[in-house]
Nucleic acid binder design. Structure first.
Lengths: 160, 160
DNA sequence: CAGTATCCTGAACGATACTG
DNA sequence: CAGTATCGTTCAGGATACTG
């Protein structure tokens, strides 16, 4: 088991700056980072989304997730199980039957993630055009690389 | 847990599949994944959190984020800038002065992320104990590796 | 000060083969 | 069917050095 274990950066925190009201995700050891790393890795979110609709067997997930390797599906499921987000049920039948389902905790996570999904859907156009604008500006800079800047006056310059 | 129904605001391509209401993150090309990858990478969230409190200079961020390399801070800021989440202002003074601040879009993202932070804070104890239980069970299995299972009856077996 | 350029390592991941 | 074990590759990210 080489990679199921988190690296668990036990980082020494010596600074006692008084601004730690906003520190929720600044500390390495903070739980938020761990959870975020879990739900944001390549497959976890997909699996959670699928299991949110119904309980499924291993092979079903393997088919549905489309692109995941057997190994990564196993690893992902083990992590989610360890965190108490999914539950694994083994039926002692001749061809092994294992079913996965979201735990109640997993369900609440799934709803929490929804707000982010909604945000993304709401703002994807803005992001796309921001990217386009940025890339256009970069393109312009490349053409400009040797020339004098006609807009270089005295004020601050926005990079957009 | 029987009803996952993501509300999937208005973004539906004309697929006939009846359950594509839940497909928001199943598709590889979906925007959600891109955004999620951005906000969930190692540093973006930290930077956004810091900039949510006040605008900051490059070196300030380098100090505050604590652990980030110069390279990764640059990369992170460029990505966030490209996505229109932060704005970069260059003051044309003799020692270069560059300030970063959240855009209005970035502010909305930050609030959206809060729900996840709240979820994590609310459930971190549950997760911690789930992990402890899982690890304890694994430990027990290792001791049991060669012996007969006293609980192996007829029913399904939960792995927790 | 605020970067860019370059090199390098280790973790993540995929592919494959084997097993209860 | 539902995994585990092993190997090879890729690539994110750290360290370091240089620059306008």
């Amino acid at each position: 088991m080489e990679e199921g274990t988190s690296k668990s950066a036990s980082y020494s925190e010596g600074t006692e700056d008084p601004w730690d009201a906003c520190q929720w995700d600044v500390r390495e050891g903070c739980e938020v980072r761990q959870i975020l790393d879990r739900i944001a890795d390549k497959w976890s979110l997909l699996v959670v989304a699928l299991l949110a609709s119904r309980r499924m067997r291993f092979t079903e997930l393997l088919r549905e997730v489309d692109g995941v390797s057997q190994r990564m599906l196993t690893v992902t499921l083990r992590q989610l199980e360890r965190d108490g987000l999914v539950e694994r049920t083994v039926y002692p039948v001749v061809p092994p039957r294992v079913e996965y389902e979201l735990s109640s905790l997993g369900v609440t996570l799934h709803s929490a993630v929804q707000s982010l999904v909604v945000w993304t859907e709401t703002h994807q156009v803005e992001i796309a055009s921001a990217r386009a604008a940025y890339d256009r500006a970069q393109q312009a800079l490349e053409s400009d690389h040797g020339r004098a800047d006609p807009a270089s006056g005295a004020g601050a310059r926005r990079t957009r």
